[in-house]
Structures are given as C-alpha cells and as structure tokens.
C-alpha cells in the first residue's frame, strides 16, 4: 500500500468520524441551534467523503446547497421560534428507547444485508481512460434527450412548486 492510499484511508476515517460523531450530536444535543451547527459539521464531513469519491461537482454543490441554503434555513427557522419554548423540557419523546432499538436494528439489518452481497468488499473501479472533464460529462448527461433530461426538468418543476408552496404556507395574512 502506498503512502497516498494510507493518507486516503486516514482522511476517510477522519471524515467518517466527523460525520457520524456530529450526526449523533445532532440528534442528542438539547439546544436546537447547536444541533443545527452540528448538522453543518456533519454535512461538511459528507462533502469530504464526496471528494474522496472523485465527485468534485457534488462536493461544491453539497456546500452551496446544504450549508449555504438548507442549514441557514434551519438556523433561521430555529431562531423564529421562542427559545424557552423550544429548549425547555425533555428533547426526546417517551418512546426514545424504542426509537433507539429501531435505529440499531436498522443498522444491523442494513449491514447484514449488504455484507451478504457479493460486491461488498469491491475495490474502486478505474476511472475510464479518456475522461477529460467529469463535470462536462455530468452536464451532458443531465440535458441529453436519451439520458436524464426528463428527471432534470421534473426536478426543476418540483423546485418551482416548492417555492410557491413555501411562500403560500408561510405567508402571514394580516
């Protein structure tokens, strides 16, 4: 194993620990603002994982969409609700033990399922020769008629619908 591979593995462990550790903090912290900030750390860890997976476009989109828009939206929403109302009392409901069991069972089941699959320990497939710019390939795939132009357009309609819906729902009628 070369030094580069070892460094990749170390990076993976650091970002995995970051992602999972802060994800646990998201669901366990009492203060909601801190949960939102931990969520940002977790999303950032996922961005590093995308970088390790050579998906450069997704790394940047993860930061722009999740950290720049979704996390900020969460922080705004938390701040718009009253502090003593949102942070008082228990933050977990009565059946949290059951929820933890369900979570553990899901993790065990998923791990068992994928580990019985033959491609479980597969190594990364080589990037095909002649790939100059993967972002350009992705862009072409998104708009070419025989590939993904329909899902792409449907996603844009969905975003428009969400925009209108969010404005309508949150609009304060005087």
């Amino acid at each position: 194993m070369t030094a580069e591979q070892i460094i990749q593995q170390i990076l993976f462990f650091i970002s995995a620990a970051l992602t999972l550790g802060s994800a646990v903090m998201v669901v366990a912290t009492r203060k909601l603002i801190q949960a939102a900030l931990w969520l940002i750390v977790s999303l950032f860890g996922v961005a590093v994982l995308y970088a390790l997976l050579d998906a450069s476009f997704l790394v940047v989109v993860q930061v722009v969409v999740y950290i720049g828009a979704i996390a900020i939206l969460f922080i705004f929403a938390v701040m718009l609700t009253q502090r003593d109302q949102r942070d008082k009392g228990p933050q977990l409901n009565k059946s949290w033990v059951l929820a933890a069991l369900v979570g553990l069972a899901t993790f065990g089941g998923l791990t068992f399922l994928v580990s019985s699959w033959t491609g479980f320990g597969a190594a990364a497939a080589p990037i095909p020769a002649g790939t100059v710019d993967m972002v350009a390939d992705l862009g072409t795939a998104l708009v070419s008629v025989d590939q993904y132009v329909l899902p792409f357009e449907v996603a844009s309609v969905l975003l428009l619908a969400a925009l209108i819906g969010a404005i309508y729902v949150a609009y304060n009628r005087k």
């Binding site: 450069s56 940047v60 922080i75």
Partner: peptide, 25 residues
C-alpha cells in the same frame, strides 16, 4: 485549477454567511 471554480466561489460565500450568523447568534 478546479473544474468547478465558479461554484467554489459561491460555496466560499456560503461559509462566509455561516460565519456571520454564528457571530450574530
């Protein structure tokens, strides 16, 4: 020489916005 350089510029701005809301809160 990032092939997503322009988006990177926007992403850095997102981190700037985050730092401001952290400071304010």
């Amino acid at each position: 020489d990032l092939n997503v350089g322009v988006l990177y510029l926007v992403a850095a701005g997102a981190i700037g916005a985050l730092s401001i809301i952290m400071a304010g809160w």
